[in-house]
Amino acid sequence: MLLEARDLTKVFGGFRAVGGASLDVAEGEIVGLIGPNGAGKSTFFNCLAGDNPPTTGTIRFRGQDVTKATPEAHARAGMARTFQVPVTFEDMSVAENVMVGAFLRHGHRAAARRVAEEVLAFTGLDHLADTRAGSLGTPGRKRLEIARALATEPVMLLLDEALAGLTPAEVRLAIELVRRIQQRGITIVIVEHIMEVILSLAERAVVFHQGRVIAEGAPRDVVDNPEVVAAYLGHHMKRVRRG
């Protein structure tokens, strides 16, 4: 297993955001984490990325214990991520943003520049290379975050709602990009709200509800699981009926 997270819990004050969730990810997979709002998937995700270490539980990545490792140690170990709300370096150009990522494995400016150019071409941002990152719209920022993460030459990419807030046409482009990233041999874990994305992208879906994993399997089967319907869609149905 590339990533093994065992019995993670995360407690904020008196609130248990994640309560004993486990996840295994094999090399080359695309795994989707889904669940209603507040299900704990983003918290779980931040535990995996080292942004917010779990209260209890262990995380092993490429055979090494990374439970309490810092985000920068995760990056060095080969785990890259994007953020739910994109945080690009606004004052820098698109190319410079990507170079920051490239400097992780390439100390020299020329080498970092080369890697950045390659990644920009791969992600279709090459025509925006000299644009100030702050002037990009949401789709551009999300794509730039992915590009920047790829420049660190990761083994695994964690995408936190990388497709939320995009128009259907942009979603299709982003899905195509994620597929191409997987074809490069990069394992992907994606947190997503949009069912369509998980259905068309993920080979395996893991459903969170109230801090626990309540179902796991092929996305089609998971969607039909009565427990999932009750937790996820059923909740929604009730609200519709009440309205």
């Binding site: 990325a49 942004d51 810092t70 985000p71 920068e72 995760h74 990056a75 060095r76 890259a80 991520r81 953020f83 945080v87 690009t88 370096f89 606004e90 004052d91 820098m92 410079e96 170079m99 920051v100 990522g101 400097f103 992780l104 100390g107 020299h108 400016r109 970092a112 920047r148 993460a149 420049a151 660190t152």
Partner: peptide, 23 residues
Amino acid sequence: RSKMGFYLAAIRGGDRAARSLGV
């Protein structure tokens, strides 16, 4: 122009994002 300049600019841009890129 060097790695350090890029890393400092990244830190100015945001600690959290910078750390996620291994800074």
